[in-house]
Nucleic acid binder design. Structure first.
Lengths: 215, 215
DNA sequence: GTCTATATGGCGATAGAC
DNA sequence: GTCTATCGCCATATAGAC
């Protein structure tokens, strides 16, 4: 949004900014509820309590529960595709895969709720995301599988089924977000703990990379 | 379950068996609903439709939705602890871990709904399972971590944080159950496909074991 | 054991005052 | 923009006939 500095905002602009801020605030609180209980399992009242507003007020900002939910999902998907986009044939596999693992683990640390919501959606059969999986994710993954295949053909990577390698990276990194409660129960720690984060990242990188790349 | 016209009052034993059979049948149908939508997200009606019985009839077999759900969860946990119990210090790490990975992947293939229900419970904060995690799972995992640590001290395994190794095995194998919809969308296959199962198992074993055990 | 009918409560959503 | 009041629906669970 382009806007030169000024002492006073136009009344309309200021109102619109405030409107947008509050919308964002509600979205954030709603995500934390939906990511725990899913769409059907969450009630409007849980969300309004979390956001400290009235039910009527929420319906002023979002015309229905479904619109609220879809808005959140849309926002999440924007971030979701980014990190894997970052490697290509010219890259060194160890470095590229290592960075990708770290980037995914950072997402698990910084946006654990988005990860959980995504997980809930998939478990429920991806009623909303099915189109996204087929139309956007699949082409991207096919392309990245080809990159991995080329690394193998160039002798830079030991033979491995590319798609399973991708699944392994996804599952191991997302696990620390989706199963954080179990991990907290068994280790007493989570990814917010810097040492634990580094230890986790290093272990996943070590196990996955040492078996596939000659050191 | 189709009911046929009854001829005569069955003897007590057989009636009790029939009672148990129908309970089991309902539990199985209820699991398939709960494992998709979670406790709050599932309705009694969805379950009675799946089991082809009336709502009243369901309440004859289970006195409340909660009892039904708890019964299912209890049944699942019985199986859940078994496979990791199977390795100890005397074992060869490659063989023991390899078998454990295969066993876990078989569980993902044969009981995907149990895996999903467990996943949903954990995401929701494990309100019911918290006690189980602390009282039963943690002691068991601490013990198995010590086994892995001893393998490392004996030089049979390269240095690795035992708990992360366990998390990696859990996450990679359970992923094929919990995210089956995504996997189906991206590969067109699932673990019921024998070739796909073997390919998956082999890849996970290869990646995890080759980096940790000298061949 | 299974049915019809119904009690009871919570939820998503709207109307209308301010 | 926010509030109070309320509508209509659907969900869990029960009562009582057969």
């Amino acid at each position: 949004m382009q806007q030169r500095p000024r002492k006073k905002l136009e009344p309309g602009v200021r109102r619109r900014k405030k409107f947008g801020d509050k919308r964002q605030f509600i979205l954030q609180k709603a995500l934390s509820v939906f990511s725990q209980y899913g769409f059907h399992g969450s009630s409007i009242e849980q969300i309004t309590t979390a956001a400290d507003i009235s039910k009527t007020n929420l319906f002023y900002y979002f015309k229905s529960k479904e619109v609220l939910y879809l808005t959140i999902l849309e926002n999440i998907l924007n971030d979701w595709l980014v990190p894997i986009d970052s490697f290509s044939v010219e890259d060194d596999p160890r470095s590229a895969l290592g960075k990708y693992i770290r980037r995914k683990l950072e997402l698990s640390r910084d946006q654990p709720e988005a990860s959980k919501l995504f997980c809930l959606e998939i478990i429920q059969g991806a009623p909303i995301l099915k189109g996204y999986l087929n139309d956007e994710l699949k082409p991207l993954i096919d392309e990245k599988s080809r990159v991995i295949q080329q690394w193998i053909e160039q002798g830079k990577l030991k033979p491995v089924e590319p798609i399973h390698l991708i699944f392994m990276i996804w599952s191991t990194t997302q696990h620390y977000a989706d199963f954080s409660v179990q991990i907290k129960a068994l280790t007493g720690k989570d990814l917010k703990n810097k040492a634990f984060f580094e230890e986790t990242c290093q272990t996943i990188q070590q196990v996955i990379l040492d078996s596939l790349v000659s050191p």
